[in-house]
């Protein structure tokens, strides 16, 4: 029983990170119909940016909350700018080309980011400074640390922030409109290209924040970490019904739980087989995901 609760807790934690990344996939797909393959690598860059800030600030031990928050903020900002810059350079020129062209550009960018970091880090793992409080909210059979709790709360806060931004602000409303009808959005005076870049910025920002949080939680990061996490998060975005933000968040948490329970009860070696098998099965039965898409396709 306590195993079960522990897996649940771990799954919820991982799920929170996955949901943050999945939201970016979902938003970006919503506005430009692109599976942004580089999104997982943006997450990875976020982890490294946060690593840079933390090692510079030299925060170790205890609840170095200001340092942690600074790292998350810096990582998020850096990836936001990176995401928008990449979109400007490699995706926007292809906005009118066949969609396959943009997808391949995204694959290229993904590889380039991964290989770039590989060269810079000499393909070595980096260990995050231990900035999280090791104190335990619950101890004994089921372990929950304050740091873990803080990370989950932060992730939830970010998601809530995104939700408020998208539903309550004019710019957020414009983003949703853009996902529905690009031409009609132009006719409202919306600068579509700029808003697309803003969407990349926001989506990448969340991924970057998730990257720093992942680093703090798992303490080991490397150039290749974005690939599988990115795939899992994308799976969550598809399962949640792409463009459907609440569905995406829910599916992110689900995938986190699947990951945690399959690692606990089966073997972590089979985790991805289970996740992708689930993806294929769900799509075969429900081509628009578990919770339905919110993407309007015109005939």
């Amino acid at each position: 029983m306590s195993d079960f609760v522990q897996y649940l807790v771990n799954g919820l934690t991982i799920g929170a990170f996955l949901a943050l990344i999945a939201l970016g996939y979902s938003m970006i797909y919503g506005v430009v119909r692109l599976i942004n393959f580089a999104h997982g690598d943006v997450f990875m860059i976020g982890a490294f940016a946060g690593f840079g800030v933390l090692t510079t600030l030299g925060a170790t031990g205890g609840m170095a909350l200001p340092a942690v928050l600074a790292a998350v903020a810096a990582g998020a900002l850096a990836t936001g700018v990176l995401g928008a810059g990449v979109a400007r350079a490699a995706y926007l020129p292809l906005l009118a080309s066949p969609r396959l062209a943009m997808l391949i550009a995204a694959i290229g960018v993904s590889l380039a980011l991964e290989e770039g970091v590989k060269v810079l880090t000499h393909a070595r793992f980096k260990s995050y400074p231990n900035a999280l409080d090791g104190g335990q909210v619950m101890s004994g059979a089921v372990r929950v640390t304050y740091g873990q709790l803080a990370l989950v709360l932060l992730a939830v806060a970010l998601m809530a922030g995104l939700w408020l931004f998208v539903t309550r602000t004019v710019t957020g409303t414009a983003m949703r409109a853009l996902a529905m009808d690009r031409d009609a959005a132009r006719l409202q005076g919306i600068d579509v290209e700029r808003l697309v870049l803003a969407t990349f910025f926001a989506g990448s920002l969340l991924a970057g924040a998730a990257g720093v949080m992942y680093g703090l939680y798992y303490t080991q990061i490397s150039f290749g970490m974005g690939f599988l996490i990115g795939l899992r998060a994308f799976t969550a975005a598809v399962l949640g019904g792409i463009g459907n933000l609440p569905g995406t968040m829910a599916a992110g948490v689900c995938i986190g739980l699947v990951q945690s329970f399959s690692a606990g009860y089966v073997s972590s070696r089979w985790t991805d087989v289970i996740i992708f098998g689930l993806l294929i099965a769900v799509l075969a039965l429900r081509p628009t995901g578990l919770f339905g898409e919110r993407v309007v396709e015109r005939a």
């Binding site: 490699a90 550009a105 290229g108 960018v109 590889l111 380039a112 991964e114 290989e115 590989k118």
Partner: peptide, 10 residues
């Protein structure tokens, strides 16, 4: 090599 290859692709 990988980096070069990726940029070539883009």
């Amino acid at each position: 090599r990988g980096l070069f290859f990726a940029l070539l692709l883009v």
